[in-house]
């Protein structure tokens, strides 16, 4: 048996609907025979009648409705058709879901699935990675699964968590990643994973860039360089302990993310390491992000816009020379 990252997301939702009557799925085109723009809910409306509901193109109201239902004890899963469109729902997510527990003592257990990141030809409005915006605001857990196994277990965990969870699933990984089977258990939420051990350099990454970083580590291994790759799994909370422990072993840090460069998850990791572990560093920490322009349409431009294994290798070599 082989299961893709996308199928893992569908299977997690099927399990959640089966096991917990409080769960329902709410979003554009998720219901009927269609099953979502990417088919992440395919067949679920038929299997769970009345619990997988199509909505109008109203991102603000979709999340607002989910918040109200969660306050009343339900466990809604919202599918944004593309992460980019969640900008319309920012107010409900940041100002409503994110503040509610702090203000009132009543948590808002919503899960918002964001099909994130770039694929060829998708252009400026169907390619964005929004994790840094959500992580910036208080009260939101931000998950960024990079493997089939995590896509499955972290979605189940997201729905179990009482607080709002932004679940960033990467569209490029939907069909490109496969696993033999789905796991029963995983690391706890908020714990990073050492995806590959090494002694010369630490690469901290998440989501699709973690896979690019692993490919870069393979390439560097051929040159005798041992790179440690850390998969953050959640960018908030950020597992600084695992990152610092790795930097203590390697003395060098490269952070790789697909979102825009100004601020963001990679900047946060570097800020943490330099403020808490400056003495551990043998060279200036570096980072790679997308370019500071909107995301281009043409594959020639797009492939140069975001980090990839080739420029991760180049950056790592440069860092190892210092």
């Amino acid at each position: 048996m082989s299961i893709t990252y996308l199928e893992a997301i569908r299977e997690a939702q099927a399990k959640l609907l089966r096991d917990d009557e409080r769960v329902f799925i709410y979003g554009q085109d998720v219901g009927g025979n269609f099953g979502g723009a990417f088919k992440a809910t395919k067949g679920l409306a038929k299997e769970f009648p009345g619990r997988v509901l199509n909505t109008p193109i109203s991102e603000d109201a979709i999340v607002g409705t989910a918040i109200g239902a969660a306050i009343q004890g339900m466990r809604p899963i919202v599918e944004m058709q593309f992460a980019d469109f969640s900008s319309i729902a920012l107010n409900q997510i940041l100002n409503h879901a994110g503040t509610h527990y702090w203000r009132t003592g009543v948590p808002v257990p919503i899960t918002v699935r964001l099909p994130s990141g770039g694929t060829k030809g998708s252009g400026p409005f169907h390619s964005q990675s929004m994790e840094s915006i959500y992580a910036h605001y208080p009260g939101l857990i931000v998950m960024t699964p990079a493997t089939v196994e995590d896509a499955y277990t972290m979605l189940i965990e997201a729905v179990a968590i009482e607080d709002p969870v932004i679940y960033c699933e990467h569209k490029y990984l939907y069909y490109h990643l496969k696993a033999d089977k789905l796991p029963d258990k995983s690391l706890p939420t908020g714990r990073a994973r050492i995806a590959r051990e090494g002694r010369d350099l630490t690469i901290v990454s998440y989501s699709a860039m973690m896979q690019e970083s692993l490919a870069a580590a393979d390439e560097l291994a051929r040159e005798g360089l041992e790179v440690e790759v850390i998969d953050l799994r959640t960018v908030k909370p950020l597992d600084t302990d695992t990152v610092l422990a790795s930097v203590a072993r390697t003395g060098r840090l490269l952070c790789v993310g697909e979102s825009f460069p100004w601020g963001g998850a990679t900047a946060e990791v570097i800020a943490c390491v330099t403020s808490q572990g400056f003495h551990l560093l043998d060279a200036s920490p570096q980072r790679l992000n997308a370019k500071d322009t909107p995301i281009p349409y043409h594959p020639n431009l797009w492939s140069a816009h975001r980090p990839n294994a080739k420029n991760i290798v180049a950056k790592a070599r440069q860092l190892l020379r210092e």
Partner: peptide, 30 residues
Amino acid sequence: HPRKNELAMISHLGAMISVTVGTLLAKRFK
């Protein structure tokens, strides 16, 4: 008092309409 069904408004006007819809949807589900 959300637990007593009195929702706690946010300043961003219009936001409470869909949230109220969600509370009613939940009651229907239940």
